[in-house]
């Protein structure tokens, strides 16, 4: 099958701090993939590399066969873990920005999502609460019909009720023939929507496996396995 995202012994360091070490993995179309790891394990770096925001020190990254760049950015929708809209923007202007720059922006879908997320176009984006800002971020990312969605901690800072709502939105609005990578350290809440998980620790890949296979073979939840794997190292 054609590979949507491919990492080939990718390494990245910031000064002396190693962020990623020899990561090799691939993600195929039509999957929801959990990227699991504690804070500072390299999840964000991995996503930012795939989104074309950073340049790897070594190794190759390919998105639909392209090296990260203009073509890959058009195919990837990245939701960063901090606001991507600018301070002066209203919710509407933040969406207009997406519409102006991405050909795959879907206006109908964005309206449906605004409604679902209970956001108003006129609200000033920077004045929204943290939870509402996360909803806006997700709306911005999922309003596009991208091939690959990269969502960095979409449920990080919100309470459990809001969390459920965001997960609902994710299942409801993602495109079935595209893939979604969701990074999180809150596994129990979200593991039921994953096809497979990738676990990383201190910049190294621990495992990549189908979640149903994990449950079937070990009789454990992904959350349990994650805790065990992390404790071992």
């Amino acid at each position: 099958m054609a590979r949507l995202l491919e990492f080939e012994s990718v390494s990245k360091a910031y000064g002396k701090k190693i962020a990623l070490q020899q990561i090799t993995m691939a993600i195929e179309p039509g999957r929801i993939v959990g990227l699991l790891g504690s804070n500072g394990s390299g999840k964000s770096t991995l996503m930012r590399l795939a989104a074309g925001l950073e340049h790897p020190d070594a190794g190759k990254i390919r998105i639909l066969g392209h090296l990260p760049g203009q073509a890959s950015k058009a195919a990837v929708s990245f939701m960063p873990d901090r606001p991507q809209f600018e301070k002066w923007m209203t919710v509407g202007e933040a969406l207009d920005f997406q519409r102006d720059f991405f050909n795959d922006f879907d206006a109908t879908k964005s309206e449906r999502m605004l409604d679902f997320m209970k956001l108003s176009r006129r609200d000033k984006a920077s004045a929204l609460s943290k939870g509402m800002q996360e909803r806006l971020q997700l709306t911005l990312a999922l309003s596009r019909r991208a091939s690959l969605y990269l969502l960095d901690e979409p449920i990080g800072g919100v309470d459990p009720v809001a969390r459920d709502h965001i997960l609902d939105a994710l299942v409801e609005f993602y495109e079935e023939d595209s893939s979604v990578v969701v990074s999180t350290h809150l596994i129990a809440d979200i593991e039921r929507i994953f096809d497979e998980v990738i676990m990383i620790r201190e910049g190294s890949l621990l495992l990549q496996r189908e979640v149903e296979q994990i449950r079937m073979e070990s009789g454990k939840s992904v959350d349990q396995l994650f805790k065990e794997v992390y404790a071992e190292c």
Binding site: I32, D164, L167, R192
Partner: peptide, 10 residues
């Protein structure tokens, strides 16, 4: 999938 909040592949 939407109703059970489960991955459509599942």
């Amino acid at each position: 999938a939407a109703e059970l909040k489960i991955n459509p592949n599942t």
